[in-house]
Amino acid sequence: MSTKTVNQRAWLFVLPVVLLVAFNAVIPLMTVVNYSFQETFGDNVFFWEGTKRYEQELHSERFHAALGRQLAFTSIILVIEVPLGVAIALAMPKRGPWVSVCLVLMALPLLIPWNVVGAMWNIFALPEIGLLGRTINAIGIDYNFTQSPVAAWFTTVLMDVWHWTSLVVLLAYAGLCSIPDAYYQAAKIDGAGAWATFRYIQLPKLKRVLTIAILLRFMDSFMIYTEPFVLTGGGPGNATTFLSIDLVKVALGQFDLGPAAAMSLIYFMIILAVCWVFYTLMMRGEEQ
């Protein structure tokens, strides 16, 4: 039975937030929408362009390439971070003094500002002076992320995995801790091995938190900017120029505000659509 109380005055309390969101999100968004459909040559004079920008953008090879790189990057880090995060969470102690030590260690990368992460890895991976760069070269592999696209990708992915796997770990760990002991005891009594216990107890119980983890990691990685920008600047060439880096290049580098506006709206719609489809699929499974 519902216990909600209807009180119209409650809306007053929400008003400050509504204003904040309006100035922060809605008004800038509407400006961008405005720019994407119109052309201006200054003096606040606008010409209606219709959907021309969108058509151009959707057919531009440059956009396709950036989108391709973006999808590849997001897929790679999801494929690595989610299983790795779950595996680490499974390996972590469930009780005892080591729990807090592990949790603090896990939380550390998440506390570092994004640009610092980029700078750290830049230095860490430099072939001449960085520990990682020198080590890889020392074992006989030619590695220079400022010149080789493969090395640049490798470094970017490694950095993201280092930075963000903890988030999956913490979410999965919280999920695992909420499974009552009775489930494990029942599985033991039923003769289930470690794999069956994982497959039929832990994984189903983790479904909700993993949905959240995947959504968060998808959105964040799809919008990634600061870390690769600081690390590689989108290079070598355009090898690590992801969507947002490309967007900034168009908007601020070339000052093409119209195409940049159209591009950012397409970008926004992709994220929204993917999240919606993914969430609906997961939740439909839940209901059945």
């Binding site: 009775a182 005891q185 029942a186 009594i189 003769g191 039929y200 107890i201 189903p204």
Partner: peptide, 27 residues
Amino acid sequence: IAQVFQFPVVYDTMSLFDNLAFPLRNR
């Protein structure tokens, strides 16, 4: 031994048949 707990333990993702079959298949 077998045990029935305070809160029912069922394997959510399985059908009722597979739940009952689980201890036998594991063996």
